[in-house]
Design a protein around this nucleic acid. Structure first.
Lengths: 228, 228
DNA sequence: TACTAATACGAACGGTCGTGCTATTATCTG
DNA sequence: CAGATAATAGCACGACCGTTCGTATTAGTA
């Protein structure tokens, strides 16, 4: 069954493959499946060691495939990083954004907050919030990766702001509140929870920040019982 | 044993050839000056490219000295990173902490906030807040560098909290306020300002967050005019 | 079953990494 | 000024980086 004889392969003619990276574009099911497996592992590794600290060699040996075999799925390291960011985005949307979109207004805003906190608390990424780390790592590295992260973060902030504005129009949030500022503060508090939990290994951080965010929301809606 | 080199120095081991890093401990004025110059440049570079992205080769050629000449000032890369963190700490204390320590209570707390915002706004480090970046970069890398960062961040949070508690005892902050939470929220907002300014290249971020922090302080002191 | 394209692999490249040696220069001291 | 010592440079090392190339294996199709 297994022909181990070394047959001369004269039939192989150099058929001028102009560019190797072209190959990454025409993929069949098997390749796609491998690619997904690579990205799943890559996202986890990158959340721990950073997008730049994630090296192709380490990733390959973690998956027990060859470096060049892995590399062939992406044209370059930058392409790999972009794909990793995209994969992380999908997971984030799945866990945080999409479940909240069945609600509207204040309910959606609360759901986004709660989902984010639970996303951090349950360690969806083993190294903490992927985007907190990535945006601080790439804020001074121009290129496609940075551009992608910027766009994603803008969309996320826009998501928060949109829900808040919706709530305001529905009269759930007081008219004087600056919804843009509110969205930003929520995001800052959430990132603070991630920061504290990672740096101090303090799982309690999410509980504390949940309180902070709820308090801030109460203040925005006018039900601020803490001022009584 | 060599009789002529018994100085009034506490040399633990008599001329151990193996340990090169010992050299870094006994330094004369000239070496110290070079060391400071190295660290000054290193802090700036590290704030841009990260503590791990800062390599000895790049640092040396940026200073136009030899790699080995630079390396001799530190026993290892980890030592260099620790020294860089320490240098950054000195600058931070100088710009943010010390000027606020002439005040007490609420005034000190306000000064700490304002100094921090101005520290971010005036780009004391060209790559934004050194510690925001470093703490997220090293939160998953065990070692001396991480330990040092953890300790510094705890001290900084403690500083904020201490001033807030002082203010509370002086009756400047309402009794019901959790000063620990207040300190944390200020820190989170400040880091958020840094994040936004770096990622979105939005210098306005500091102005916005200044508003957020003042509003939060007003709420804590009871002069919350925004709720009127 | 044979052919072909997709996929994976091994080896190697030029570079750069951190880190040692040794030699040379600069500075200080007696 | 001579000699000692601190400070810096030159050079080389092994390891790993991203990347390329040729080839072997696999799977889909004629």
């Amino acid at each position: 069954m297994k022909p181990n004889q070394q047959r001369a392969k004269e039939t192989v003619q150099p058929q001028r493959r102009t560019s190797r990276s072209m190959k990454a574009l025409q993929r069949r099911p098997r390749g796609l499946k491998t690619r997904r497996a690579i990205l799943r592992k890559a996202v986890n590794l990158a959340s721990l060691e950073g997008l730049e600290g994630l090296t192709i060699g380490k990733l390959a040996s973690a998956l027990r495939i060859s470096k060049s075999g892995l590399f062939a799925h992406f044209g370059s390291k930058e392409d790999l990083q972009c794909a990793v960011v995209d994969e992380a985005r999908d997971i984030f949307v799945e866990k945080v954004v999409r479940p909240a979109h069945q609600f509207h207004g204040l309910k959606r805003l609360r759901a986004l907050c709660e989902n984010w906190l639970s996303y951090g608390e349950t360690k969806v990424f083993p190294g903490g919030c992927f985007f907190s780390a990535a945006s601080l790592e790439f804020d001074d590295r121009p290129g496609r990766v940075r551009d992608q992260i910027v766009e994603l973060m803008k969309k996320w902030l826009g998501n928060l702001e949109y829900a808040a504005r919706d709530a305001q129009l529905a009269g759930e949030i007081r008219k004087e509140v600056d919804v843009r500022q509110l969205a930003f503060e929520i995001q800052a508090l959430a990132m603070g929870a991630n920061w504290s939990s990672r740096l101090f290994r303090d799982q309690n951080a999410f509980r504390l920040v949940r309180g902070s965010i709820l308090q801030r929301l109460d203040q925005a809606t006018g039900t601020a019982q803490s001022r009584r």
